[in-house]
Structures are given as structure tokens and as C-alpha cells.
């Protein structure tokens, strides 16, 4: 069962990397969201998977009966989801403000704090950039 999740997490990470390498900062943010999901699944699966048996203790018992899902990674993932939400919300606000200030969502053009880019450092000809 962990094998399937391993493949799924790998796919999510691949999508993340591809999105983050985009010049559009919004796509970068999408990548960030996917990466959060991938990381949560990874932690979750690292604690091994138990199908349909949540970590609950029935009334009258002092401990769960039989094998139940590993509660420790669940607690961690729960925390991670909330913190990831805070991070993503903040990142979106930053991008929004950056767009307001700089008028662009192209990371290559966000160079207020950087020296001007040499022509040789660009992957694409300047004309192409203007067209975009």
C-alpha cells in the first residue's frame, strides 16, 4: 500500500518541481501547494498505513483494541496542514503585493534589489521577453 503512495508522492513532487521552475510566480505558488500535499502524504505513509481503523479507544477500554492507525504521524500531519495553510496564505499575499508594486508576475522581471541582468545571462532573446 505504501508503494502506491510512494509513486503518488513522487508524481506530486515532479509536478511541483516543474511548476516551481516556471517563470510565472503564480505557478510557483501552485507548486508550493502541491509540495505541501506531497510532504503530508509522505509523513503519513512513513508511519505505515492501516486501512479504515482510526486511532480511537472504545468506551470502557483503556487502550485501542487490535491494530489501529498510527496516531503519531497523524498528529504531525495535522499540524503541518495548518502551518502549511498559514504559509501559503502569506505567500499569496506577498505575490499579490509584489504584483501591485512591480506590475509583473514574471520572476525574471522582479529585479528591484538585483543588478540589471546581462544579455548573456538570459535564456531567451530580449525580443521574446518583450513579446511575453
Amino acid at each position: 500500500m505504501e508503494t502506491v503512495l510512494a509513486i503518488l508522492v513522487g508524481s506530486l513532487v515532479a509536478a511541483t518541481v516543474f511548476l516551481m521552475l516556471s517563470r510565472n510566480i503564480v505557478k510557483f505558488l501552485f507548486g508550493l501547494v502541491l509540495l505541501g500535499n506531497a510532504a503530508n502524504l509522505l509523513i503519513f505513509a512513513a508511519g505505515r498505513l492501516t486501512y479504515a481503523r482510526p486511532g480511537l479507544i472504545p468506551d470502557g477500554a483503556a487502550a485501542p483494541l487490535g491494530d489501529v492507525a498510527n496516531a503519531l504521524p497523524q498528529a504531525m500531519v495535522l499540524t503541518a496542514i495548518v502551518i502549511g495553510f498559514g504559509l501559503t496564505a502569506f505567500a499569496f499575499a506577498l505575490v499579490y503585493r509584489a504584483y501591485q508594486e512591480l506590475g509583473t508576475t514574471d520572476t525574471d522581471e522582479m529585479r528591484v534589489a538585483e543588478p540589471p541582468l546581462d544579455a548573456s545571462q538570459l535564456d531567451t532573446p530580449a525580443q521574446d521577453r518583450r513579446a511575453a
Binding site: E2, A6, V9, V13, T16, V17, F18, A45
Partner: peptide, 15 residues
């Protein structure tokens, strides 16, 4: 290529 590579490495690591 890099994205697929990163994904494969992640899967291998998780396995």
C-alpha cells in the same frame, strides 16, 4: 527532466 528525476528520487527514497 529535472522534475521527473526529483519525483523518481522521492519515490525511491520513500520506498
Amino acid at each position: 527532466v529535472l522534475a521527473v528525476g526529483t519525483g523518481l528520487v522521492t519515490t525511491a527514497l520513500m520506498l
